[in-house]
Nucleic acid binder design. Sequence first.
RNA 1: GGGGCCGUAGUUAAGUCGGUUAUAACGCUGGCCUGUCAAGCCAGAGGGCGCGGGUUCGAGUCCCGUCGGCCCCGCCA
Length: 598
Amino acid sequence: MGSWRRTSYCGEPASADIGKKICLMGWVQRRRDHGGLIFIDLRDRAGIIQLVFSPESLNNVHAKAHDLRNEFVVAVEGLVRKRPDGTENQNLPTGQVEIEVHEIRVLNDSETLPFMIEDDSDVAETTRLTYRYLDLRRPALQKKLMLRHKVAMATRNYLAENGFIEVETPVLTKSTPEGARDFLVPSRLNAGHFFALPQSPQLFKQILMISGFDRYFQVVKCFRDEDLRADRQPEFTQIDAEMSFVDREDVISVMEGLVVRMFNETGVKLNPPFPRLTYAEAVGRFGVDNPDVRFGLELKDLTRDLSGSGFKVFADAAAKGGVVKAICVPGGGAFSRKDLDDLTEVAVSFGAKGLAWVKITDEGWQSPIAKFLSDAEKDAIAKATGAVKGDLLLFGADKAAIANTVLGRLRLNIGNRLGLIPKDVLNFVWVTDFPMFEYDEAEKRHVAVHHPFTSPMDEDLDKLESAPLTVRAKAYDLVLNGSEIGGGSIRIHRSDVQSRVFEMLGIKSDEAHSRFGFLLDALKFGTPPHGGIAFGLDRVLSIMTASDSIRDVIAFPKTQKGTDLMTDAPSVVDQKQLDELFIRVAKKQSVAPSSTGA
RNA sequence: GGGGCCGUAGUUAAGUCGGUUAUAACGCUGGCCUGUCAAGCCAGAGGGCGCGGGUUCGAGUCCCGUCGGCCCCGCCA
């Protein structure tokens, strides 16, 4: 660089700058060498501008330009000038002007790249992740990370303005067996003892309320050692907040303000309050607790109408306390045999034993089960579902949980299949009144639907032991377009209630004390009523940016196997490191030399 | 733990029923070219098909195993 200093970004020069002498630094995006004139597109994070090198220019710049290659790093000094009439590039923000280069310094060269730095290049994700530093040069990815920065800043500003204080909580903390699997960190100073990375700062933020901070927030990494998905990474970022002396409505209204502020960064104006659904409504009408309310195809309950049906599957489901429900697919009568087979496969994969369907045709009800249905039943079904000629009815008859899940998933599948889901729409919905517990068949005990520190509803408190599955929690989720982007609750602030909940979860008193003793103790020393919420920043951003995967809004994401292709983490470590930690590896790791990639 | 899809030049893909020297585009290298912006024209260099075994006279093509990537179920309080 020598004494040169950049005077502007490549994306900045405009007509107003014509005649100015400027200095730019950036990467060579592309070279167009006409033998005479040479054009170089110079790129930095702000944009692209065209440099012009004329054979008549001084300082040998034309020869130097001839030798430039993609991704060379250069500094240029030159004059901003108007492009000749008719050569303006309307596709470029800087397209009215160009830089007449007077002097150029090549700051670094570059080998030929494994892929082009272009937004529309279709490169295997393996290659992109191996060379993530190159992938991150793509303007689209830079824009996403810049938006991420802006959203985080907007969050901090909004919460600070509203009296929230950002407090850092430990990353090395205590393992809490409830919930997700922990990432463990061995303690060298305490042989055989382990820290856990936090699944969330849940207990610390409650402790901060007990300490009197009143309003807390943090933009914080959380860790869960579970299998990955398109919308799940083992480390992810939460916007975590907690408030004292509040009820659900206080939390929701403050947080709606936050969501407005976040989406304001994308130019979207939201108008809270957002719609509400209770958990029971969400599951009843949409089959899931994270309903995508952008389209219809709602589930209709036919249990009463079909409890006496001649179709044994329906009658049995009703008799055993289950449900019979259906969705009506408008125009679905045109579905082929293969379509129906596909849908059956989907239904079975979510636990159905099969999929009963009816096509309503000109000739009447066409279906393997039509002969079992009486005219009265058909009338009742048609009335409840609104089905008319040309429609398809799909039935779920099972325990409520299975029937709802199956139909809920079919609903999404069909919504996608038929293009019923509008893009460019943001449909928020709060889901409230979650059940406190559900019964875990595998573990033979009740588990918390939200988490063990969630307060039961006051009016359900006396049913805690007698009818635990009917107890509702003061929990709420914010769902956006079918994706859970946030969740929280009013917490238990009385140690006696907390103890009763632990008891219901099958956590014995001594066990509770060894795991959460600090919280149980703290609850005894003047704990204010409090509650809060956490938003999944990565999920919010992937919806904002219409990304297919959460990986696109994370600078250095992990693969589905939880590895980092750029650094090659995780890796084996020296025996010496293990010895210091008193760790012996039980099963010899398979030696896995990488056979693909760089 | 399970189901599905996919690995062929640097990249993206084609490769028929197993059959000569494995195609193309982009990129790359060199040349020509003074208004291009996916510059153009000409010439050229790149791979032995993720890896290992097997069947066969003969294997990108078939079989088995394995490694890796993606999507999903389970899991994710």
